[in-house]
Design a protein around this nucleic acid. Structure first.
Ligand code: FES
Ligand code: FES
Lengths: 159, 159
DNA sequence: AGATACTGTACCGTTTTAGTCCTGTATATG
DNA sequence: CATATACAGGACTAAAACGGTACAGTATCT
């Protein structure tokens, strides 16, 4: 089905929730407001923190916030963060793994064309494009709105 | 990983083999020349025959051939034939299936943007782009070459 | 010190996938 | 017409991936 993990699906739900809320939200908070079970939310957030999509703050009043302006985050990044590099088949990936036909395989690396195409199209869909409210708002207004709310969040998190 | 099935991977290998060979090839023949195990080849070919990518002829001297000019076949078609509709998440597919968050889901149908992007990029990669020889041949020459070899095949199969 | 909240990892049950096999049907050939 | 070839369809099993959970550990605030 060429489908994305369920975990990635949830991740977008949670991220959108984070997008519209306060700067720093705890995993429990996000779980409650998004409907995704807490352990799952925790798992997702942990994973997203390993990349430069989210940042975390420990301790009381801690939580998660965007590591940088969310309007610059693409779906390609989110998907790659949750499921590893976008490689449609093992033979074409960076990992060097191949199927068992490598020795006589007549198409060494031709899947690359497919990978590049898919990767490119995913890079052009931004996370904020997934936010339902975006439909009813002026794009520029939305961006500045989000930037205003979240840029300080990243700074605060870094402090 | 956003990966395609191994079966789809094999399918492209087998299709490329069919692309360069005679008009009608048996499953056993294709298995031998591609290195993919026979039962698997058979499964793939059967599946591809359900769509209008391949055509089959039963009986002695039977086999498989392209149902139409192969240079018009896109990777999107091949992938969809093997794994069903390209729907990155269940919530966005045509099938009407959704994850369990449907009732309070804040992003009804926003994955559609992702699906359209991915589907579009896959539609632009043609099957013959996967053929290694294509690299060393003039595109026009290749197309006419393939057309000359395979257009009669379809007619013969239909007879 | 104690409560809160993230970190990392390991575990297990479920689902999906890959691969195999068997029975049936259609066609060419002698 | 008998027989060999070759596709059609579906059932079945083993293996891998995924989803979800649990737990022990660490950092921070009050
Ligand atoms: S090595 Fe697997 S398709 Fe090429
Ligand atoms: S119903 Fe599943 S993400 Fe919307």
């Amino acid at each position: 089905m060429l489908r994305v993990n369920k975990l990635t699906d949830y991740a977008v739900v949670v991220l959108c929730d984070l997008l519209r809320g306060q700067a720093l939200r705890s995993a429990a908070d996000l779980s409650a407001s998004s409907g995704v079970p807490l352990p799952t939310v925790a798992k997702i957030l942990k994973q997203l923190t390993k990349t430069d999509i989210l940042q975390s703050v420990r301790g009381v009043n801690g939580g998660y916030g965007f590591a940088r302006a969310p309007q610059n985050i693409s779906m390609a990044e989110v998907i790659e963060a949750l499921e590893g590099p976008i490689a449609v088949t093992g033979c074409a990936g960076d990992s060097g793994e191949c199927c068992e036909l490598t020795d006589q395989c007549p198409m060494s690396g031709h899947w690359t064309a497919v990978n590049v195409a898919v990767r490119g199209s995913l890079a052009e869909v931004r996370l904020i494009d997934m936010l339902p409210e975006a439909r009813f708002m002026d794009p520029d207004d939305l961006s500045s709105n989000i930037a205003a709310r979240h840029a300080p969040a990243a700074q605060q998190a870094q402090a």
